[in-house]
Computed example of a mutant assay.
Amino acid sequence: MPPHAKSPTPDLVDTLIVGGGPAGLTSAVTVARNLHTAIVFDSNDYRNERTAHFHMLPTWDGKNPIAFRDAARQNTIDNYETIFYVDTKIEKAAKNDDGLFELTDAGGKVWKGRSLVLASGIIDVPLDIPGFDECWGRSM
């Protein structure tokens, strides 16, 4: 199980971050370094879930992507008390008339923040070629 902050999440934060991969984790530490609060929402559904090796991130090339995500979370939790992690899928995002952003998660809970970062990555569309699916994320 990935690391989580020890204190409960606040009702209102400075930044809501959708996505617990490299972009969302980088956003979290950037927000923390600027002395703001944030919640990172992680669906635990990753584009690279089939691979055991992480690439294109300095010092993590060839290493396990799960280890990277856990280490990045732990590093932020250890160094900043203003970042929180919630493992849930976000179903809806909206900006209210009062200027606050509202996210609704898969369980129906509503989260509020002053700003929003969408770091949810991309979705690959596999090609209809025999053998493609078996090789995707493993050998190509």
Rank of each mutant, 00 (worst) to 15 (best):
M1E: 11
P2S: 09
P3F: 07
H4V: 15
A5I: 01
S7Y: 03
S7I: 06
S7D: 14
S7V: 07
P8R: 13
T9E: 14
P10K: 07
D11A: 15
V13A: 08
D14S: 14
D14Y: 11
D14E: 14
L16P: 03
I17N: 01
I17H: 01
V18N: 11
V18Q: 12
G19V: 03
G20I: 11
G20K: 08
G20H: 10
G21T: 14
P22G: 04
L25A: 03
L25D: 02
T26Y: 01
S27R: 02
A28T: 06
T30S: 13
V31N: 01
A32K: 07
R33I: 03
L35A: 13
L35Y: 06
H36D: 08
T37E: 14
T37R: 11
A38K: 05
V40R: 03
F41A: 11
N44Q: 15
Y46D: 12
Y46F: 15
N48V: 10
N48H: 11
E49L: 05
R50T: 09
R50W: 12
R50L: 13
T51V: 06
A52I: 11
H53G: 00
F54W: 12
H55P: 02
H55V: 12
M56N: 13
W60R: 06
D61A: 12
D61K: 08
D61E: 12
G62W: 06
G62F: 11
K63M: 07
K63T: 07
K63Y: 04
N64I: 00
P65G: 03
I66D: 10
R69H: 04
R69W: 04
D70S: 12
R73T: 09
Q74H: 00
Q74R: 13
N75R: 13
N75G: 13
D78T: 03
Y80R: 06
Y80A: 08
T82Q: 04
T82K: 09
F84I: 06
V86M: 06
T88G: 02
I90H: 00
I90C: 01
E91C: 07
E91S: 07
K92G: 00
A93E: 10
K95L: 12
N96Y: 00
D98I: 04
L100C: 02
L100F: 13
F101K: 03
F101S: 02
E102D: 08
E102N: 13
E102R: 15
D105W: 08
D105E: 09
G107H: 13
G107N: 15
G107P: 00
G108Q: 08
V110R: 15
V110Y: 00
V110E: 14
W111N: 09
W111C: 09
W111H: 15
K112Q: 15
G113R: 07
R114P: 00
R114V: 03
L116A: 05
L116K: 09
I122T: 14
V125H: 07
P126R: 08
I129P: 08
I129F: 11
I129R: 10
G131Y: 07
G131N: 14
G131M: 08
D133T: 09
W136Q: 10
W136A: 05
G137S: 10
G137Q: 07
S139F: 04
M140D: 04
M140W: 14
